[in-house]
């Protein structure tokens, strides 16, 4: 079965990103397909490659990146939510004339249409939020 996962909250403050990760991992282990993971609102902060959590804590961005690499996941960050919060990839850095980028290469920036498409193309859309 195909799932799309929507996450609305940032890392470490809310459990949403952790719950979504555990769900995605379990779904893949059971042989389901994750069509897309969409990071919306504060959830765009899950995509920063600059976070340095304490060594005995989980690194949520790296967890997602590793899961995506192992399973070829499409992880999409909402562009409007990302720009408001200073989350940029190299293309957006150049386009906006900024001096830095911070989005992990396992994630890509795109628009809300990708969420709508995920809802249409998947059998289930599961939301994790606050």
């Amino acid at each position: 079965m195909k799932f799309t996962i929507l996450i609305n909250e940032g890392p470490y403050q809310h459990q949403a990103a952790d719950s979504a990760y555990q769900f995605a991992k379990a779904a893949l282990e059971k042989g389901h397909e994750i069509f897309r993971v969409f990071f919306y609102n504060d959830a765009v902060n899950n995509a920063t490659r600059l976070a340095i959590p304490p060594q005995d804590d989980r690194n949520i961005t790296v967890q997602w990146a590793e899961l995506a690499e192992q399973n070829n996941l499409d992880m999409v960050v909402c562009i409007a939510a990302a720009q408001r919060r200073g989350m940029l990839d190299d293309d957006e850095r150049d386009r906006q004339g900024k001096d830095a980028s911070n989005i992990h290469p396992a994630f890509r920036i795109s628009g809300l249409g990708q969420l709508v498409e995920g809802g249409i193309q998947s059998d289930r859309l599961i939301t994790f939020g606050d």
């Binding site: 799932f3 769900f23 282990e29």
Partner: peptide
């Protein structure tokens, strides 16, 4: 239920 059971409920 564990996370696998959560996935089953969704499916």
């Amino acid at each position: 239920v564990d996370y696998a059971g959560f996935v089953d409920l969704v499916a």
